[in-house]
């Protein structure tokens, strides 16, 4: 009898902790609910609710979690009547895809080199890479500008893609995946006569998959959200990514703003859901010390 009461108490306690933890967590996600409702509201309704914000009146903002007249009107307008939006969406996709592909080709072999070949200079170079990884964009802005200018790449997509390919962050993450590969395995492959490149392809890539994929997931979220680089190096608005265009939409077009935000959000949510394990893994790898 006593034991049963204790069990129930324990259960209650754990449930209470769970709810307490969920409370702020739900608050964390509330903004997305606002975005979703805003995106299915008609323009008239939106204007009515949001007008206190930009008219500077004494009335407060008003909102309904379920709109009076839910409609996909704004989705339709944006998707079918605004070809410019597609150009920007495509820009974003192109930038992210090229950067990630480049990082795969350049960064992953470098991570492999750091993890497997403990030669002289390895450690020193690695420290240099860590320092470069931690420098914020503002510190490298002028130097990037100078080199992009002398290569004649300013105001092109290459100005964003090329420097990003040589970011050292993915090297660090992929390194986290490679370093758990046992050396004996590689020695055994060598004795069997496999070349270094073959070992990289047949042992490194499959076993280091988690590190590589976490670099890709974190990279996607980072570059989909990229603002500083295009703001500094791209002037033509036709070349802008979505992340720069969204803030340009004014309150008068709030409907557009909500829908455009939702459409920008969707790929990020997909990657988040699909790659959550890798995201977590990546965060842990990013925290590994040498």
């Amino acid at each position: 009898m006593m034991e049963k009461a204790e069990l129930i108490f324990e259960k209650l306690k754990s449930n209470l902790i769970k709810t307490l933890l969920l409370l702020p967590a739900v608050f964390v996600c509330l903004p997305i609910i606002l975005l979703i409702t805003g995106s299915v509201m008609g323009s008239g309704e939106l204007k009515q609710y949001l007008s206190p914000l930009f008219l500077d009146s004494v009335e407060f903002i008003n909102w309904k979690l379920i709109p009076d007249y839910p409609t996909f009107e704004n989705y339709g307008k944006l998707l079918f009547l605004t070809p410019q939006f597609f150009v920007l969406f495509w820009n974003s996709i192109k930038l992210v895809a090229c950067i990630l592909a480049g990082q795969l080709i350049v960064g992953v072999p470098a991570a492999w080199a750091f993890a497997i070949y403990k030669v002289k200079g390895n450690r020193m170079l690695f420290v240099l890479y860590v320092v470069l990884m931690l420098l914020p964009f503002q510190v490298t802005m002028l130097s990037s500008y100078l080199v992009l200018n002398s290569l004649g790449l300013l105001d092109t997509h290459k100005a964003i893609i090329l420097p990003a390919i040589f970011s050292t962050f993915p090297v660090f993450l992929a390194y986290g995946g490679f370093r758990s590969i046992p050396m004996q395995l590689i020695e055994a492959a060598r004795i069997d006569g496999a070349g270094e490149f073959k070992i990289f392809c047949h042992i490194g890539l499959p076993l280091g998959k988690s590190g590589i994929l976490s670099a890709m997931v974190l990279g996607f979220l980072e570059y989909w959200n990229m603002m500083e680089q295009p703001m500094a190096f791209i002037e033509s608005k036709a070349l802008w990514p979505l992340s720069l265009y969204l803030p340009e939409i004014t309150w008068a077009q709030a409907g557009y703003a909500f829908v455009a935000s939702m459409i920008t959000l969707i790929p990020a949510v997909f990657v988040f859901i699909w790659g959550q394990d890798y995201l977590e893994q990546g965060i842990i790898f990013s925290g590994l010390k040498e």
């Binding site: 769970k18 933890l21 969920l22 967590a25 739900v26 964390v28 996600c29 903004p31 997305i32 606002l34 975005l35 805003g38 949001l50 914000l53 903002i61 909102w63 979220l221 989909w224 959200n225 603002m227 979505l242 992340s243 720069l244 265009y245 969204l246 803030p247 709030a254 703003a257 909500f258 935000s261 939702m262 920008t264 959000l265 990020a268 949510v269 990657v271 988040f272 959550q276 995201l279 977590e280």
Partner: peptide
């Protein structure tokens, strides 16, 4: 689930969150 909820803001692009901040 709890971890995902807390991690989610990391995936939200800043540009999409700004309109909410303003509201």
């Amino acid at each position: 689930v709890i971890k995902s909820l807390y991690l989610f803001p990391l995936a939200m692009p800043t540009a999409t969150i700004v309109i909410v901040w303003k509201m």
